[in-house]
Design a protein around this nucleic acid. Structure first.
Lengths: 234, 234
DNA sequence: TGTTATTTGTTCGTATGTATT
DNA sequence: GAATACATACGAACAAATAAC
């Protein structure tokens, strides 16, 4: 008699490789056994090993370098960004709710976290934020580097909390989806600059409520723009 | 002369399959071309097709059914859970900050979203929440189904906002990591039941501030427990 | 500089397991 | 049960990239 529905070989190999990383306490960048070694150690063919490694590479759990070797990956949030972007895009254009959900998460996260930031932000960080706003002002009409500066602002803001990467991931998803639909989130450069400056001003005054309110206002602007676009009003 | 650093074949195939799904507006569960068809259409070998499909399967963008066919995946948040769990676990046990970050995100999200829930929650939903709390009370000491009930509570709470899946993902990551380190987040069954009942009571009274405060108190308890455990105090 | 060894990338052929009809 | 269509898995070979000598 034969067992039915055994675990697929590729899945098993995936688990074994992950367990190997955890057991040996390997950190990002550490070398992994070569494909040939994994074949021998796990008693499977090269194709099975490769399929498992490809799957883990997609999750950024391993990193494969052609002609060099396989290494522990950075476990970055790239798969999260790719997955959420596809998920949002695949819900079709007639569903504006999908994009609104991403924005809602960003909004709630940033409005909540800025209260903690206000309590711990240093003068040096405030100066860096001020610098970004100034560069925004200079960039002005040339929309080229504007989104990058916006991202930089939000990254500096939450760097001290350790959650900056996660915030950045949601930022990227929102931008990619809106970009794929042919529009950008900024209402107008002048207003966007002003909103960001208001946030820095409130933070400098250690005004927790004011900072949260300024962030809320900033997001109201983005929301309005998104609602406008999703109605097909170019 | 030869072009240097062309895009790896597997990556190209991945993009092409994703584009195919988007272009044809295929939804979850729709059948994809068979491996043989993809080989022909894209002009590559079976192994390359399989490696690309395995990578997309890891992202839940496609679903492969042995002996049956390949289908568009659910684009669920499973990869997010796997990735974040590995990411948190791989930062080693001596770094309590990694787990604290996950908890911080949950806390900020739930405390922010419950304000919106309070404004829109229906009587029927409140009754369902009440029912979960009652079942918690009955489960009492038997810690068996307790975590499941907790999860169910939080899922019902945010179901109307459409972000329940994302919240559930963070819930699962937190639980898996704490589980892998041999402890559970509940301070004591009685207190946990009480905290949840307080939330329902505040919601029923349409008390936005009270609901947020009750949620905050709930998370303070979890935080305290996590801090205790990460110090090695069993 | 160029040569060589190592490692991953890609392909083919073949056999086997699985689900549907 | 049989036939068919499909995914799963193995082995061998050659191509391409990288590092080190």
């Amino acid at each position: 008699m034969r067992r039915m529905s055994e675990e697929p070989r590729t899945s098993r190999i995936q688990r074994q490789v992950v367990q190997l990383i955890l057991d040996r306490r390997l950190t990002a960048g550490a070398p992994l056994p070569t494909e040939a070694e994994l074949m021998e150690d796990l008693g499977v063919s090269r194709n099975s090993v490769r399929e498992a490694l490809k799957a883990l590479q997609a999750l950024d759990i391993v990193e494969i370098r052609h002609g060099y070797g396989t290494y522990v990956g950075q476990a970055s949030l790239t798969p999260l960004v790719d997955g959420l972007t596809f998920r949002t895009l695949a819900r079709h254009d007639d569903d504006p709710g999908a994009l609104a959900e991403i924005l809602q998460v960003r909004e709630v996260l940033e409005e909540g976290l800025i209260r903690r930031v206000a309590a711990t932000v240093t003068e040096a960080e405030l100066d860096r934020l001020e610098g970004v706003v100034t560069r925004m002002e200079r960039a002005g009409g040339t929309g080229r580097s504007f989104p990058e500066l916006d991202r930089e602002f939000h990254e500096i803001l939450y760097a001290s909390l350790g959650n900056a990467q996660l915030l950045g991931a949601f930022w990227t998803v929102f931008r990619r989806v809106s970009g794929a639909r042919g529009w950008t989130a900024d209402p107008s450069p002048e207003i966007t600059v002003r909103r960001h400056r208001d946030i820095v001003t409130a933070l400098r005054a250690r005004d927790v409520e004011g900072a949260q309110r300024a962030m809320a206002v900033h997001f109201r602007g983005i929301e309005a723009r998104a609602a406008q676009e999703s109605r097909g009003v170019g």
